[in-house]
Design a protein around this nucleic acid. Structure first.
Lengths: 125, 125, 125, 125
DNA sequence: GTGGTCTAGACCACG
DNA sequence: GTGGTCTAGACCACG
């Protein structure tokens, strides 16, 4: 895995796992790779993966079964969506409105977004 | 000033100064408060303010006149707009599209933004 | 069975067995379920149950008859009471006094306990 | 500091700090020793103290001021009392009632506790 | 100076 | 096999 120097590795691994869950590649109740396996695969230290896992456990996304490893928590996917929605509504959206105002951005500038939204609304019709 | 622990303080102070310029509270050619004053006012270390100023100087937003302090550069406001537009189109917008897709956000979720955009489009008619 | 992550599973199983004995559901001389059976029933590893059993054997609560399994030792119930009394007087009570002092707990806070004690004293009159 | 092998070092250091706060030796707003200082004083690794501090920060007992170290959070003492009371009412007290019942303990057995409670009630009159 | 992250490596308990 | 803790030591950003 390629890491971005601006973010901590343990955070990036966590985001990767959350992405896997959101994309349905890891499902509730499923066992995630062991700390050792993932550390080897990602070429990082075991302690780093450890930090990722305990972090995701604190967030209610992973669960630890003694001696057996970590498992995707029930409803982990909706937990992740909730966390990300909260970030969206509390941080991203207000910032965006502010930016639009400040830079006098037009609907034209948001075309890629508006098209994506239409696509989603059509799917859900 | 209230700082957010997730972003560097020197960056946050920089954003505050850029906001002042965009809002016309600081105008081109005007002297900005000294490192000493600003550090005291914001209750931060002088080194931090120093870092903010050299950073804004690198971006062409402030200018340093030896022995006289820092001044708002000519056209600082349009420089700021350019920088922020670049960030908007290269980072914020693509990220937003990705988020909308992932969280299956609807036009409804973007209501505050869409209203702001309408307001802007009306102003510019 | 529901396990508490803060205590070792083999200890928790041991406490469960001791409770069974104290409550008369398992009596002296009676055969306890086999390691295999108990492990399956509790959905734990056989090694864990094994550890519980050898631990209870060390405490004089279970006995092992070669090829026949584990049996409740004679006087196991009074052995358990002795062990638990010792823990009570040496650990729980002093800790409790310390907690009461530190948290400034009142008689009111101990109501459930005091009522239980009265009930016991009445029974033994 | 003498460490007990049954508990993790980082937990024991945390309890020591909480005790200091409860006893008024560290007060709200006060700076606690730096990670480096405490690690040296307690003859443990910096990472261990680090873990203690981030742990106490998660609990709302310490706060981190960038580049300046950790400080006792406002109301840290009542936060600690709340945490410890919760443990008392949810775990210690029910266990105690159960023990009293099982071992047929009398008021006599709880004498040290009852005396402590009287002392506290007298103080608060 | 401050704390945070990461590594290599050891050791431990539990299963 | 599993994860958790701890150490020694390096490096980094921030103040």
């Amino acid at each position: 895995m390629e890491f971005n120097d601006n973010k901590n590795i343990f955070i990036q691994i966590g985001e990767w796992i959350m992405d896997q869950i959101i994309q349905g590649k890891l499902i509730a109740g499923e066992r995630v790779p062991s700390v050792r396996e993932l550390a080897e695969e990602m070429v990082v230290n075991r302690n780093t993966v450890n930090k990722t896992f305990t972090n995701l456990q604190d967030l209610g996304i992973l669960e630890n079964r003694r001696g057996m490893g970590y498992f995707v928590a029930p409803n982990a996917d909706s937990t992740i969506r909730d966390i990300r929605k909260q970030i969206f509504f509390n941080e991203q959206l207000p910032q965006l409105v502010e930016t639009a105002k400040q830079l006098q951005l037009s609907q034209e500038d948001f075309k890629p977004l508006l098209e994506q939204l239409k696509r989603i609304d059509n799917e859900n019709e």
